[in-house]
Design a protein around this nucleic acid. Structure first.
Lengths: 344, 344
DNA sequence: TTGAAAGCGCTACCAA
DNA sequence: TTGGTAGCGCTTTCAA
């Protein structure tokens, strides 16, 4: 950061204290109850129009904003849906999913909050979230064990939904079928005659939640066949890709399923620089169906993923909130479809 | 979402109500005050070790988690730093920045929360944020006018920091010098002999906050010279890029500064497909210095951006919280450096 | 060393 | 149609 000079001198700033509904009541010459009725449009109570006007006017004048904590303390519950903020760079896929979800939950009058989990893990994280008394929690299953779920429920969370390859006891589950991604990609390569298949696995921490099951899926796809699967760790940087490409021929592979399109692009470029023909010498397939795959030459084959619509997930949350006792729902949510282009 | 069968039958689930500190006190056979002392390690009060043990044991047994709202209601303030959740797909640049910031603020004992703004704008958004009574708010200047800042401060926010090309009255400002990005890129093209310069501007909504100043910067760079700048709206899809590429020759341009590396890649591919030589027929430069630029052929020239370190920004927030009356700080935060590769 | 009680801001019940 | 008031869960002062 570069400090630059400040033009305006510091204002004295009256620094009045934060206005409360009592202040509004005083200014409007009514009781706090009346203020509450007016500002919340309480249907059961009829307030005369002049009074309403006075109250609203007073609130406006003071810049009154209700205190959410006090309100939910009194109410005994909140409308907050908590999600941990992703700890890795979220791709466009997840971003779109999140936007849609926020919008849909907003329509149902929930407030979505992403909690910045700064290096806190496991039950401790669950406890931190529970302090906010969210009405629902939506989190990666990797962040939340059965004990975490229990903590949240004990603290009043009426719905806990996990996202990940496996269900967590006591919680609703969105089962991301990452194995299916690896299976689909690898079967595609197999079907096109490839038998010695490499699988790129990111060396970066935090991505193994996704990459490990994709690798497993690849293994499943070749189980009982004459094909082999070789794990290829790769850091997301040119140097490492070049190193991997340099030992490509000795590896004796004829195809590679890269963790996602970005890693696929990285490796494909390195292989091309090494003089290999794609897909002749090596078939390449990625995953996530990012735009960049379409722009490569040859065009990158990939696995298209379908995340659940925000509306559907919002509906699940709402259902769960209304009936917390119901049996946990299980949904498969990654519609994985192979998109065959030119690189395989 | 695909509904799949649920193995386990619904548990009866005791559904006990949420334990409070009073419950802990009861179980431990002490007063609520003692519970508070023990659980908060209050230094001023000495509690015997056996009592401490009993209290902690009781809390553990009940699964007690303190109620953040009640606590901050009583305390009169919170440690929550609120940021609106980005409404556009956040790139790796912003993701890294955000992670670092969350970590740094976490070290200072703040809780970072991203508020999912579902289609609420302007002062209304500020009011929604203010309901949570955050101690600090960090938001794009585009989301927050002077009135919004005033609303937040009136509601007890001790620090408001805006991020954007211009400062907002009453708030600290991180001045993202987007104009500098456009200026640097365009000057680079000019220095390399280009005179008819196109500037790609995303047609997508929400990005104009960044793209408009970048375009302005490009205009500034050629002001008073014989060069021209032409605005080129482009949607992020192949078809639109192909259309633009098709009318490239009639446009008579010899260079293009694309909004960022992704748009640059999109257009560059389309131009190449059209048979144009890069950089011979058209020099191309992007921005943001994404990995993909290094993987293109020719390698993509770009503008490298430096976002402030999380530590520095966290320190600014902390300073502002401790001294809310201080004059607003202004910092320039986008260190823009042209990275010349092969496409220009 | 521990307990009693006030009060943070708000809503909803009950009275007037 | 409006007001009084209890009480949500917590911390902290004051008393014991």
């Amino acid at each position: 950061m570069v400090q630059i000079p400040n033009p305006p001198p510091p204002e004295p700033s009256a620094a009045r204290s934060v206005p409360t509904s009592a202040d509004v009541a005083r200014l409007a010459g009514v009781s706090r109850a009346t203020v509450s009725y007016v500002l919340n449009n309480t249907g059961a109570v009829r307030i005369s129009e002049p009074t309403r006007r006075r109250v609203r006017e007073a609130a406006r004048e003071l810049g009154y904003v209700p205190h959410a904590a006090a309100r939910s303390l009194r109410a005994g519950h909140s409308r907050m849906v908590l999600m941990p903020a992703p700890s890795f760079p979220a791709g466009p896929l997840y971003s779109r999913f999140l936007s849609g979800l926020q919008w849909a939950l907003g329509r149902l009058d929930y407030t979505v909050v992403q909690y910045g989990t700064a290096g806190v893990h496991g039950d401790e994280a669950a406890r931190a979230w529970a302090e906010l008394r969210p009405v629902a929690v939506l989190a990666p299953g990797s962040d939340l064990g059965p004990r975490g779920v229990e903590i949240l429920k004990r603290s009043g969370a009426r719905a806990v939904v996990t996202l990940g390859p496996e269900a967590v006891e006591g919680a609703h589950a969105l089962l991301t079928d990452q194995e299916g991604v690896g299976r689909g990609a690898t079967r595609h390569l197999y079907d096109r005659g490839r038998r010695r298949i490499g699988v790129v696995v990111p060396a970066e921490r935090g991505l193994d939640v996704f990459s490990a099951p994709r690798l497993d899926g690849a293994r499943q796809a070749v189980a009982g066949t004459d094909a082999t699967v070789t794990e290829l760790p790769l850091r997301y940087e040119e140097g490492d890709a070049a190193r991997l490409a340099a030992r490509w021929r000795p590896l004796g592979l004829d195809a590679v399923f890269a963790y996602n399109d970005e890693y696929a692009m990285l490796l494909m470029r390195a292989l091309q620089d090494e003089g290999l023909d794609i897909p002749g010498d090596a078939a390449v397939i990625g995953a996530d169906d990012l735009m960049l795959g379409r722009l490569l030459r040859p065009r990158l084959s990939t696995v298209h993923l379908e995340l659940p619509a925000g509306r559907d997930l919002a509906a699940l949350v709402d259902r769960a909130v209304h009936d917390p006792g119901a049996a946990p729902e299980r949904h498969k949510v990654l519609g994985a479809t192979v998109v065959h282009r030119e690189s395989s």
